[in-house]
Nucleic acid binder design. Sequence first.
DNA 1: CGCCGACTTGAGCAATCTCAATCATGGTGG
DNA 2: CCACCATGATTGAGATTGCTCAAGTCGGCG
Lengths: 244, 244
Amino acid sequence: MSELPPLRDLQLFASVDAQTLQRLARDAKVETFADGEVVFRQGDKAVFFVVVLHGYVKLSRTASCGDEALVNICTAGESLYEALTPDGAIYRVGAEAIGEASVLKLSAARFGGLLRDSSSLARAVIDEAARKISALISEVESLKGQNADQRLAQFILSLCPGGEDSCCFRLPYDKRLIAARLGVKQETLSRAFAKLRDIGVRTETRDIFVESVSRLAAECRGGDRHAHLPSERGDFLESRNVVA
Amino acid sequence: MSELPPLRDLQLFASVDAQTLQRLARDAKVETFADGEVVFRQGDKAVFFVVVLHGYVKLSRTASCGDEALVNICTAGESLYEALTPDGAIYRVGAEAIGEASVLKLSAARFGGLLRDSSSLARAVIDEAARKISALISEVESLKGQNADQRLAQFILSLCPGGEDSCCFRLPYDKRLIAARLGVKQETLSRAFAKLRDIGVRTETRDIFVESVSRLAAECRGGDRHAHLPSERGDFLESRNVVA
DNA sequence: CGCCGACTTGAGCAATCTCAATCATGGTGG
DNA sequence: CCACCATGATTGAGATTGCTCAAGTCGGCG
């Protein structure tokens, strides 16, 4: 139970009116989780609307046959909106902290009420949903149309800070999770990393060094086979606001 | 340009207040399309919020390398919400009629304004977004965790009318599209249909006869390997409303 | 030192794709 | 009525991709 941070700083609430923000703050609870701790389970009654404050929270859905599909990895400022069923009654996916993480919990019932009263809050939620949809469409697109190597290339690309054509940075979480996120087995991911080595992507445990971001971007579009149309950076991370 | 149908009858607008509905109707345009006609193109400026009135509209996204991933097939009462980018400026996917179809076009600018003024409309959009998210999560889940046979089984299952354990019905669109929807090639789909024949799913061109729906449901959970946890009907089609 | 977890690598296998041939089926024009 | 074609669907054979299982490496850390 740590201090309540200013809600205004969260992307989700950036343009919500002050009064609503104040009301939200009134019953907001902050909770911290250690690595691997469960935020909520798939099937639980959805009593809270949850927003990530810091760290990463993994959303995954386990099918009746037992295998688990990673749905998203949410980070600071994102809600766990996609965890809710369309009727908002239960969580359709489970949520678990990756590394230490803290979240904001808002009473779902009260949140629903504020949604009715505040158009800026409603708008914020609509924008948030649009971002989630956008990210999911990107995921479906890459699952259907790209092989493991290309998906990894795109993922790394999405992590590259803009600006320089060569860059280095650290992977946000371990390779087991990256594999799950890309929808492949760890062994396959490992081999994909090996292939990227040939086009100037060096990896050292968790550190990545990209020789040429543009070279990498070309890889996403299919190695060397085709090569036209302007590049378009994939959005494993997203931003902005929606509808009209 | 046909008659404007009562907006109230569309699932999307079912619980929107009368005044807003009236305002929506004021500038709503109905447009009809023949099979294969383009409703809008990927990258177009998003000047309309579009809702399907009847028939099917295919949403697909073509990557820079040219191959096209089917994102969704929308039917009566559904909006083409997921076509919008998070900032609502352009369409991130293209829309095309499958067979004859008609849609409602609402000025995006005006729609945005009404969204601010009417909490019931905002709520309707939030619910719609939640349904889209739910469907997309199901799709990601099945792409990551199931093979082609299981995906087809689940798809057919989602088309079975409830009630009887055996049933027959007609496929809503041709196998080319079903293949795209499931993310496999037509040949693979054809072989998957052949396998389902062994477990009592007979196909005659476009007509399907399912001997035992429960037998089919078992197939989705992994053929015969595992068999616990209560069944849960996949949602290629969805319904209901959201967020506490 | 020795174990453990995370990662890598190898070899064989299964699922899916690709390319190509074949088979309805429905419509068209003679 | 029939020959002919176009389209969608099926089937086969071989190439690819990714998976499984198993072994091996590497870096902490007790």
